[in-house]
């Protein structure tokens, strides 16, 4: 389990990006984080990844405090961030440098197959399309089999069609080992398609505003009325989060009262 306990972050320039963010995330859960621009979503993700340290509060994964990057936590950024001097296959195997060569080759081959890029194994990153590059980034993060995978707007630079394709892909891959997924997104549709629970954040300072359980079985039908309902709930909550006249509710409340309004 991943426990965030009053995680706060104030940047050296005085910006309070994150204030007392608390949440508990079950192993294997898919959580979407949504909120207005600048409300601290990336900051939160970087604190969980151990890339930046929280100013106060703790991130605890399986009874272990996270202060620096951890083997059990993988991250996918908004850009693919492939290493341009490595072939696609070597990029995917980047996190397996310590594994025996045969095992590495085998895992990379399987991952390539899994993301549908087997014939691009020896290509350079510059030869990939944006969607293909992001799939390589997903494979690279998944190959070491992290327990928690963080995704910071991973599909936001892609067109709607490719995005859907990759969302399905991601769910597919997730089903293999069922890591915890924490996904930052601006796309309500994406949040409702993927997540078991949507956390809505509110800016200045960034904090938890609301959470919405998405009780829909998978695979989800994007056109079903229930799906539309959940989308509407998330949208409404998002609107309210940006409306300064709406007071904070106690963000530490359990998920049970998610639809309190």
């Amino acid at each position: 389990m991943l426990a965030l306990d009053r995680v706060s972050k104030t940047y050296p320039n005085g910006v309070q990006a994150l204030a007392r963010f608390s949440a508990e995330i079950r192993q294997g859960e898919i959580v979407a984080i949504i909120g207005g621009s600048g409300c601290g979503k990336s900051t939160l993700l970087r604190a969980i990844a151990g890339l930046d340290r929280a100013s106060s509060g703790t991130v605890i994964l399986d009874n272990e405090a996270i202060a620096s990057p951890h083997a059990k936590i993988g991250i996918i950024f908004q850009e693919p961030r492939l290493l341009p001097w490595l072939s696609v296959a070597d990029n995917i195997g980047f996190g397996l440098a310590d594994a025996p060569a045969a095992e590495r080759r085998e895992k990379v081959a399987r991952a390539l197959e899994r993301v549908g890029l087997a014939e691009k194994a020896q290509a350079w990153p510059r030869e990939l399309s944006g969607g293909q590059a992001q799939r390589v980034a997903i494979a690279r993060a998944l190959v070491p089999q992290p327990e928690v995978l963080l995704l910071d707007e991973p599909f936001s630079a892609l067109d709607a069609f490719t995005r859907r394709d990759l969302q399905d892909h991601l769910l597919d891959l997730w089903a293999d080992t069922r890591p915890t997924l924490i996904l930052v997104t601006h796309d309500v549709d994406e949040a409702v398609v993927l997540a078991d629970r949507v956390l809505v954040m509110r800016p200045r300072p960034g904090r938890l505003f609301d959470q919405i359980e998405i009780n829909l079985s998978r695979p989800r039908d994007r056109n079903s009325p229930l799906f539309e309902n959940f989308k509407r709930s998330v949208l409404t909550s998002l609107d309210r989060s940006l409306d300064r006249s709406v007071p904070d509710r106690d963000a530490t409340q359990g998920p049970g009262q998610a639809m309190w309004w």
Binding site: P69, H70, G74, I75, E79, R81
Partner: peptide
């Protein structure tokens, strides 16, 4: 951003130099 990729894979100092900085 590329250095961060190295950090997320917990490269040691020498590994960071060899696998990220040198080629870059």
């Amino acid at each position: 951003k590329i250095v961060e990729v190295g950090r997320t894979f917990r490269l040691s100092g020498p590994a960071m130099i060899r696998r990220i900085l040198l080629p870059a």
